[in-house]
Amino acid sequence: MPQKNAPPAAVKARSERITSRSRNADWKKPPRRIERSECITCDSCLRSCPPEFGAIFDRGLDVIIVPELCSGCPACVLVCPVDCIYVDEDWSPTGGDLWALADLTAEGTP
């Protein structure tokens, strides 16, 4: 579960972003995106994403970043062995299928 070891307030804030399906308006940096054609699905980025964001998910054949959960911090970029993570200035709202993954990791989910 992405929130492991995150402060309770951070877990609650992440759950609220999942519920509202919106990005924190105070975040100044744009979210990140993973270029699927370059990604080797090593999950280094997923493991390094701070638990209070928990923005990265492994969907089996690809790894994705939910932009509404991504603060734009460089934690994932710093560990990516193939440099396939970029700033996503023109990000689009996340579709329902990806929110289903995020819902599974929200606070209060069994």
Rank of each mutant, 00 (worst) to 15 (best):
residue 3 Q to H: 13
residue 3 Q to R: 15
residue 4 K to S: 08
residue 5 N to Y: 09
residue 6 A to N: 00
residue 6 A to L: 00
residue 7 P to E: 11
residue 7 P to V: 05
residue 7 P to Q: 03
residue 7 P to N: 02
residue 9 A to I: 04
residue 9 A to M: 02
residue 10 A to W: 04
residue 11 V to H: 09
residue 13 A to W: 12
residue 13 A to E: 15
residue 13 A to F: 13
residue 14 R to F: 13
residue 16 E to P: 06
residue 17 R to Y: 11
residue 17 R to L: 15
residue 19 T to S: 14
residue 19 T to C: 05
residue 19 T to G: 05
residue 20 S to D: 12
residue 20 S to C: 06
residue 20 S to H: 13
residue 21 R to F: 03
residue 21 R to H: 09
residue 21 R to S: 05
residue 22 S to N: 08
residue 22 S to Q: 12
residue 22 S to R: 08
residue 24 N to K: 09
residue 25 A to M: 00
residue 26 D to R: 07
residue 26 D to M: 03
residue 27 W to S: 11
residue 27 W to L: 12
residue 27 W to H: 12
residue 28 K to M: 09
residue 28 K to C: 01
residue 29 K to Q: 15
residue 29 K to P: 04
residue 30 P to Y: 12
residue 30 P to S: 12
residue 32 R to G: 03
residue 33 R to T: 06
residue 35 E to A: 04
residue 36 R to C: 05
residue 36 R to V: 11
residue 36 R to S: 11
residue 40 I to H: 06
residue 40 I to N: 06
residue 41 T to H: 07
residue 41 T to D: 12
residue 41 T to A: 11
residue 42 C to I: 00
residue 43 D to S: 09
residue 43 D to T: 06
residue 44 S to E: 11
residue 44 S to N: 10
residue 45 C to M: 06
residue 45 C to Y: 07
residue 46 L to K: 12
residue 46 L to G: 01
residue 46 L to Q: 14
residue 47 R to Y: 14
residue 47 R to N: 13
residue 49 C to H: 06
residue 51 P to T: 01
residue 51 P to N: 15
residue 51 P to C: 14
residue 53 F to S: 11
residue 53 F to L: 13
residue 54 G to A: 14
residue 55 A to L: 09
residue 55 A to M: 05
residue 56 I to E: 07
residue 56 I to P: 03
residue 58 D to I: 02
residue 58 D to K: 06
residue 58 D to P: 11
residue 59 R to W: 10
residue 59 R to A: 15
residue 63 V to S: 11
residue 64 I to P: 00
residue 64 I to G: 01
residue 64 I to R: 09
residue 65 I to L: 04
residue 65 I to H: 02
residue 65 I to W: 01
residue 66 V to L: 15
residue 67 P to L: 04
residue 67 P to T: 07
residue 68 E to K: 05
residue 68 E to H: 12
residue 69 L to Y: 07
residue 70 C to I: 08
residue 70 C to A: 08
residue 71 S to I: 05
residue 71 S to M: 09
residue 71 S to H: 03
residue 72 G to Q: 08
residue 72 G to K: 10
residue 73 C to S: 08
residue 73 C to I: 00
residue 73 C to Y: 05
residue 74 P to G: 01
residue 75 A to P: 00
residue 75 A to G: 00
residue 76 C to N: 01
residue 76 C to G: 02
residue 77 V to E: 14
residue 77 V to R: 00
residue 78 L to P: 00
residue 79 V to Y: 00
residue 80 C to R: 01
residue 80 C to Q: 02
residue 81 P to Y: 00
residue 82 V to Q: 01
residue 83 D to T: 03
residue 84 C to G: 08
residue 86 Y to A: 10
residue 86 Y to S: 08
residue 88 D to S: 04
residue 88 D to H: 03
residue 90 D to V: 04
residue 90 D to Q: 14
residue 90 D to P: 03
residue 90 D to T: 12
residue 91 W to A: 07
residue 91 W to T: 02
residue 92 S to I: 14
residue 92 S to L: 15
residue 93 P to R: 13
residue 94 T to G: 08
residue 94 T to W: 01
residue 95 G to V: 03
residue 96 G to R: 14
residue 98 L to P: 00
residue 98 L to Q: 04
residue 99 W to V: 02
residue 99 W to I: 08
residue 100 A to V: 08
residue 100 A to K: 15
residue 100 A to L: 10
residue 100 A to N: 09
residue 101 L to H: 13
residue 101 L to D: 12
residue 102 A to P: 06
residue 103 D to H: 13
residue 103 D to Y: 13
